[in-house]
């Protein structure tokens, strides 16, 4: 089913999204990948505050290529989400609303998604040029020294994604592949 949603995202919206839904996302999202997650974890372990409150927010696992003059961003497709699995349950328990990435998640992450009524979207891997066209603004929010791995605030308009793991734990990667296996 095709749906249009705005973000940040509340649990009342997350609940309505089902694995297999094709969504167009509009609003503010934040990039974070390996190095930013590691640094956030170290910050939390020291008892300090994170650069932003993740309540209802959306993380996009992405590190862009540099922007050419006059453009907000370079190529901007998803990276493999499972590398962040180690850090994700803690962020979900802090209220993180959704994640956009690609690839499988660990059982611990799926449990935390269900526990917190969150949602995991996949964007099309390797479509970085196309997806960059849905990003209208990009600015570094934190960890600028990490370069492509800094936390960026992005404004997105009708960013295409697919619900892969919904708030009940249904997992499109498992069901969809079974449908075509052995054909």
């Amino acid at each position: 089913m095709k749906k249009y949603i705005t973000v940040p995202i509340g649990k009342e919206v997350s609940r309505t999204l089902k694995a297999g839904d094709y969504v167009y996302i509009t609003g503010t999202i934040y990039t974070a990948r390996d190095a930013a997650h590691k640094r956030m974890k170290e910050t939390l372990d020291r008892g300090e505050n994170l650069p932003l409150n993740w309540e209802g927010q959306v993380i996009y696992y992405m590190g862009p290529s540099p922007a050419r003059a006059g453009r907000p961003i370079g190529s901007a497709g998803p990276t493999t989400a499972s590398r962040m699995d180690k850090y994700t349950p803690e962020l979900l328990d802090m209220g993180l609303g959704a994640m956009i990435g690609k690839g499988k998640r660990s059982p611990q992450v799926i449990e935390a998604i269900i526990r917190n009524r969150a949602v995991y979207f996949a964007a099309v891997g390797g479509a970085g040029a196309l997806l960059s066209k849905c990003i209208t603004k990009s600015e570094v929010l934190a960890y600028e020294d990490l370069g492509a791995e800094a936390i960026r605030r992005l404004e997105v308009e009708n960013f295409p994604a697919i619900v892969v793991i919904d708030s009940e734990g249904n997992n499109l990667y498992e069901t969809a592949a079974q449908e075509y296996a052995g054909k």
């Binding site: 996949a122 697919i162 592949a177 075509y180 296996a181 052995g182 054909k183």
Partner: peptide, 13 residues
């Protein structure tokens, strides 16, 4: 291609 993984891993040939 018989595994069913498909484009983006979301099912297909």
């Amino acid at each position: 291609n018989g595994l069913g993984i498909g484009p983006g891993g979301l099912g297909g040939r």
